[in-house]
Design a protein around this nucleic acid. Structure first.
Length: 553
RNA sequence: UGGGGUGUCGCCAAGCGGCAAGGCACCAGGUUUUGAUCCUGGCAUUCGGAGGUUCGAAUCCUCCCACCCCAGCCA
């Protein structure tokens, strides 16, 4: 069976609607509230909405669901747009705002009141909660419920005019206080908030709730399929009730899918904010954050994120996705597309005693083992080199395929060498290795038939450059840090960041431009930091290590 | 104890009455100047459970069980 991207229950619905003639064109929307930064869960929602439109030659709007000025800001609006663009999506026409429909919502509120389907309620928040009942007990009618249409009209106008204090009154739909669905127990449509709005300033002191806004926004924009997550399922009857009772220009339909829960991460806005506020990470775009900007800085590619979203599918079941799938997606992309380079994280000096000290050879190495189109780079080879301290042992068993005293190893893209002796510091630690070159081993195996067991990376001591390398690990050490209320703070991985100040890189890597991605051979995938990297002070972030079937065991 | 959902391999996920796709992870080999990649092979006699209908059930029916969501003037 062949894998068909975008083949899921939503696509089936769209296909049916298209073939039955219910719709001529698919119109979806991504409707974030501008009260936080986008994260991997939003990336899935973006992929679902834009992907469905793309696959069916339809359109997808970007709409800010800005109905609650107390939590929102312009800063988020700009960051969200940048993230969506970076992911590679183009929204249909201009950016939309729920707030630009506020007058229309108000006019429709008057329609509902006139129909006798909405009323102004005097109950305070606490009283309203008591009247609402519980999950198992029916609610009771508000004392305000039987007000006349004319009185409701008057009161609503005065709410709008700012005659009442915040919270003093609300507008509610008159539906059914005994409904088993709590959302249908006379839901609140408008609340009074004398807070200036980032888009409409002080024009309004009453703001529509999500329920009174969302479906109507969809109808105004001609959204055919309003896709949201499972927790809104109970709101669908209300969504439909409002569409049925209002003279809206179109009839959108709501569908829900299961939200993404990656293992080893948290995605609630509150928890992400806590990580930032308490300094656990350096900011919203810290490479350990599951935010879009964090993943970007970590070195993730839009293609890998989109691939991941395709891999996990879109269904109505609610599960935990193994973060290894995301890691697979980025490795797959970078293995194919990232240029190779050599970096020594823990430098150990190797002196090639038979190599002239004034000699420099510029060895040619391919930028990628199988992509000739990526060209090649020059590797200066000199008498003194650095190798990784982990790649040398005075003695080792046969499983160790690196440099051992008296044994051979291949220097990647260069010669085979053999270690002759070690120099130690006062504490007995190896601080230098003396070795010699096996003749004629550039691109050839040793003539004596004794092949080296392994290959290690190296950098010229005199021609390499110093670099700062940030080694990132998963932020949490627990598979489900999100379980429990504050428990996630107890599962923070104390080793999620190790900064290597004195790494040594081959000269070509210093020329990287910010956000350029590489595979440091035998180490992993790295990206030149978007903000801190420059040729004079190279800074690389580890995106993800190479798959390691040796260390794992 | 109300309402709405979901249950297919460790994880994700196809399947829509005709005899359990695929991916991730894992395991075993092979190739390899990256212990990477790549290649080959192995990974559900069984679909939350129990009954029933049928020549035939993961798919239909009944009952049961587990888990998720809902009592913001948040979205």
């Amino acid at each position: 069976m062949e894998y068909i991207p975008g083949s899921n229950f939503l696509q089936s619905i769209v296909s049916d609607d298209l073939s039955s003639g219910r719709i001529k064109e698919v119109v979806t929307r991504f409707p974030p509230e501008p009260n936080g930064h986008l994260h991997i869960g939003h990336a899935k929602a973006i992929s679902v909405n834009f992907g469905l439109a793309e696959a069916n030659e339809g359109r997808c709007n970007l709409r800010f669901d800005d109905t609650n000025p107390e939590k929102e800001s312009q800063e988020y609006i700009e960051a969200i747009q940048a993230d969506v663009r970076w992911l590679g999506y183009s929204w249909n026409g201009e950016v939309r705002y729920a707030s630009s429909y506020f007058q229309q919502f108000y006019d429709w509120a008057i329609v509902l009141v006139t129909q006798g389907n909405a009323y102004v309620c005097d109950l305070g928040a606490d009283e309203a909660r008591e009247y609402r009942g519980t999950l198992t007990e029916s609610g009771r009618n508000s004392p305000s419920r039987e007000r006349s249409v004319s009185e409701n009209l008057d009161l609503l106008a005065r709410m709008k005019a700012g005659e009442f204090d915040d919270g003093a009154k609300v507008l509610r739909a008159k539906i059914d206080m005994s409904s088993p669905n709590i959302n249908m127990r006379d839901p609140i449509l408008y609340r009074i908030r004398s807070t200036p709005h980032h888009q409409t300033g002080t024009d309004w002191v009453i703001y529509p709730t999500y329920d009174f806004a969302h479906g109507q926004e969809d109808a105004i924009e001609g959204i055919t399929h309003s896709i949201c997550t499972l927790e809104f399922e109970d709101h669908r009857p209300l969504y439909n009730w409002l569409i049925e009772h209002l003279p809206v220009p179109s009839e959108p339909k709501q569908y829900e899918f299961g939200r993404l829960n990656p293992s080893f991460t948290v995605t609630s806005k509150r928890k992400l904010k806590q990580l930032v506020d308490e300094g656990v990470v350096m900011g919203w775009d810290d490479p350990r954050m599951p935010t879009v900007s964090g993943m970007r800085r970590r070195g993730y590619t839009p293609a890998a994120i989109r691939k991941f979203c395709d891999m996990i599918g879109t269904t109505r079941s609610d599960g935990v996705v193994d973060i290894a799938m995301l890691e697979f997606a980025i490795r797959e992309d970078l293995n194919e597309n990232a240029m190779r380079g050599m970096c020594v994280l823990r430098p150990l000096k190797v002196v090639l005693t038979d190599y002239p000290s004034d000699n420099i050879e510029n060895l040619h190495a391919p930028a990628h083992p199988s992509r000739d189109d990526l060209g090649e780079r020059l590797l200066p080879f000199t008498r003194e080199l650095y190798i990784d301290a982990d790649d040398f042992r005075e003695e080792a068993n046969k499983k160790f395929k690196r440099l051992v005293l008296g044994k051979r190893v291949r220097l990647r893209n260069a010669y085979v060498i053999e270690a002759d002796e070690v120099l130690k510091d006062a504490r007995g630690n190896v601080c230098e290795v003396h070795a010699h070159i096996i003749a004629d081993t550039l691109g050839e195996n040793p003539a004596d038939g004794i092949k080296p067991k392994g290959v290690i990376q190296w950098v010229s001591a005199s021609h390499g450059k110093n670099a700062q390398v940030r080694l990132y690990e998963r932020l949490f050490s627990h598979e489900s840090p999100d379980k429990g209320d504050n428990a996630f703070m107890d599962h923070i991985n104390p080793e999620s960041l190790e900064v290597v100040m004195e790494a040594w890189i081959e000269p070509s890597l210093a020329e990287a431009s910010p956000e350029q991605r590489y595979q440091f051979e035998r180490e992993g995938y790295f990206v030149a930091d978007r903000y801190d990297h420059c040729s004079d002070k190279p800074v690389f972030n580890r995106t993800i290590g190479l798959r390691d079937t040796w260390n794992n065991r």
